[in-house]
Every structure is written in structure tokens, then in C-alpha cells.
């Protein structure tokens, strides 16, 4: 079975999940959430205004009609305007995506590389003092709240020492990468590397225990070649899959970093939207991020099948 057929089937299988996400978001905002008109109208509410707003939002129509409106919004990408700023939602996402990626992509790449190198080192030295020390350190590092890292890091490295700008963003990619994004990325790594190291270490150790490693030894190969060729090639399968599946978790960290460092990304926009009860933005964000997650999962699945000759596109 070939690649296109596989992709086709997997995309087809995504449809029920996406419908579920749409339904969940819809029920949450249009049914559980109650009448948004009161939120919007605020304190000056008089019955006419509320009726007017309700009509504008379409919430005076039956639920199924509202669902249709929601679905058409998703399909066309037109979620209307933000309730708070009147800016079109599509415009918000278009302009906020860039900064988020400037933060996310280097974080993902660096995290993966650092984690693999450290995990290989500790796996090679398993049971040693260094291994145990690093494992305990990583547990402690994981236990400190991301918030504490950010608050202290921002205060010490930006406010006190002045090594980095406290917050801000520019229009130039290079300047952002070298100036504004550095501290957030480093702080993000502090939190995300430790769990990855632990996970990759177990992946590698699982492979080290396999029979084929014994065969490789019996052939007279060096420990270095066994680890870097035989073991790593096998461990790469769960690692790569995990990197892509771990994207949503990284996203969460990016939310907070964007907010603290005033980076005009999607995460900060979502947090502000939650603070302001800006429903259109949250709804759009949830649905689109879900789509992106599903695509990332598909990509992970695809890579898994490329890396593992035992699995076919079936």
C-alpha cells in the first residue's frame, strides 16, 4: 500500500475526531456557556441592547442553526471580529502566528538535540554516579514550576543583570531571534529538556536490553558503534514520534513565555481572550490548534512508518 492511500485514509479518519472537537467547542460555548450577550453588553445592559446583541451573534436562533453557523465559520475561516478589539479574528491569527513560531521552532529543535545528547550520555554511563546525579537533578528541575523559572529568570537575567531585554519584540526576524527570543527560549528549555531526557533515556535503555544488541556485541563491534548505530537507529523511532506528539505540551509553555515577555504571539492572545471572555478568539484558537495537533500527530505517524521498516502504510 502506498503513501497517498495511507495519507488519504488517515485524513479521512480525522474527520470524526474533528467533528467531535467542533461539537465539544460548540457545546461548551453555545450551551454550557449560557448567553454571551450579558458578557458583551456589560453593565450598561438594557433589554434592547441585549436583544440587539443576541440577534447580531445569532444566539437567538435554534441550537442547530448556531452549529451550522459555527461550522461555516470554521470552513471559511471567518470567525467575525474580536469582541474586545473589533479586529477580525483571522487577522489576529495571521499576524500572531509568526512570533509564536519564532519561539516554538528553535525551542523544539534545541530541546530535541540537547535531550538526545544528554540521554545518550547517561544511557552509556547507566548506573554510574553521573547517571544517577543527572536523573535526580532532572527530577528536581521538573518539579520547579515554570512560573518560578520565568519570574526569577526574567528578574535576574533581564532586570538585575541586564543581559537580555525584559520584554519586547521587533519586526525583524533576526533581531527577535538573537535578542528578544533568547531568554524565553532558554527558560523554556530549562523546563522541557528534563522530562525529555528521562523519556529518551528509557527509550534508549529499552533498546540496550534487546537481543540484537547482544548479537552486535557477539560480532565484535565496539560499544560506541553499538550505541550510536544500532541502538540509536532503533530508539529514534519512539523519539521522533514523541517529539511531534509532544508539540502541544511545548505550546503550553510557549503560552506563558509569550505572556511574560510580551511577545505578540497566539498564546498571549489566547490568555488575553480568556481574561476578556473574548469567545470568538478562543473558539477559533481551540479548533485550529486541534487541527494543527492532529496534523502533527499524522506527521509523527508518518515519520514512524518511514523510520520503522516493520510497519507498512496500511
Amino acid at each position: 500500500m502506498n503513501l497517498t492511500a495511507f495519507l488519504f485514509r488517515r485524513l479521512w479518519q480525522m474527520i470524526p475526531t474533528l467533528l467531535g472537537v467542533v461539537l465539544l467547542v460548540f457545546l461548551l460555548f453555545n450551551w454550557v456557556g449560557g448567553d454571551p450577550a450579558y458578557v458583551l453588553a456589560g453593565k450598561m445592559a438594557n433589554p434592547d441592547d441585549i436583544a440587539n446583541i443576541r440577534h447580531q451573534l445569532g444566539v437567538d436562533r435554534p441550537l442547530w442553526e448556531q452549529l451550522l453557523i459555527f461550522v461555516s465559520q470554521i470552513v471559511t475561516g471567518d470567525f467575525g471580529n474580536s469582541w474586545a478589539t473589533r479586529e477580525p479574528v483571522s487577522e489576529i491569527f495571521r499576524t500572531r502566528l509568526g512570533p509564536s513560531l519564532v519561539l516554538l521552532v528553535p525551542m523544539l529543535v534545541l530541546e530535541t538535540l540537547v535531550a538526545i545528547v544528554v540521554a545518550l550520555t547517561v544511557a552509556a554511563l547507566r548506573g554510574s554516579v553521573l547517571d544517577r546525579t543527572l536523573m535526580v537533578t532532572s527530577t528536581v528541575m521538573m518539579s520547579i514550576s515554570l512560573l518560578v523559572y520565568i519570574i526569577v529568570g526574567q528578574y535576574v537575567f533581564a532586570s538585575l543583570l541586564g543581559w537580555f531585554p525584559v520584554k519586547g519584540w521587533s519586526d525583524h526576524l533576526w533581531r527577535n531571534l538573537t535578542t528578544y527570543a533568547v531568554l524565553p527560549i532558554l527558560l523554556g528549555l530549562m523546563v522541557s529538556v528534563a522530562p525529555s531526557v528521562r523519556l529518551y533515556r528509557t527509550f534508549i535503555l529499552d533498546e540496550v536490553g534487546q537481543d540484537y544488541v547482544r548479537t552486535a556485541r557477539a560480532k565484535g563491534l565496539s560499544e560506541r558503534r553499538i550505541l550510536l548505530v544500532h541502538v540509536l537507529r532503533n530508539a529514534a523511532i519512539p523519539i521522533v514520534t514523541n517529539v511531534l506528539m509532544g508539540l502541544p505540551a511545548l505550546l503550553t509553555g510557549a503560552f506563558l513565555l509569550e505572556r511574560f515577555f510580551a511577545i505578540p504571539g497566539i498564546g498571549r492572545e489566547i490568555i488575553m481572550a480568556v481574561e476578556r471572555s473574548d469567545f470568538p478568539i478562543i473558539k477559533a484558537a481551540t479548533v485550529y490548534v486541534a487541527m494543527a495537533t492532529l496534523l502533527a500527530n499524522l506527521l509523527g505517524d508518518l515519520l514512524y512508518r518511514v523510520l520503522d521498516p516493520r510497519v507498512h502504510f496500511e
Binding site: V21, L28, V274, F279, V289
Partner: peptide
């Protein structure tokens, strides 16, 4: 699949936004 498609914290944010 539906619950894991939405990143956990985003889902929690969305619910928190709805529940006043």
C-alpha cells in the same frame, strides 16, 4: 481522540473562560 486533539491547557482555558 477529541480530548487529546485539543492541548490540555488550552481546553482548560476554554472551559475556564466559559464558566464565569
Amino acid at each position: 481522540g477529541v480530548f487529546t486533539a485539543i492541548p490540555y491547557l488550552l481546553l482548560v482555558f476554554a472551559i475556564a473562560a466559559v464558566l464565569q
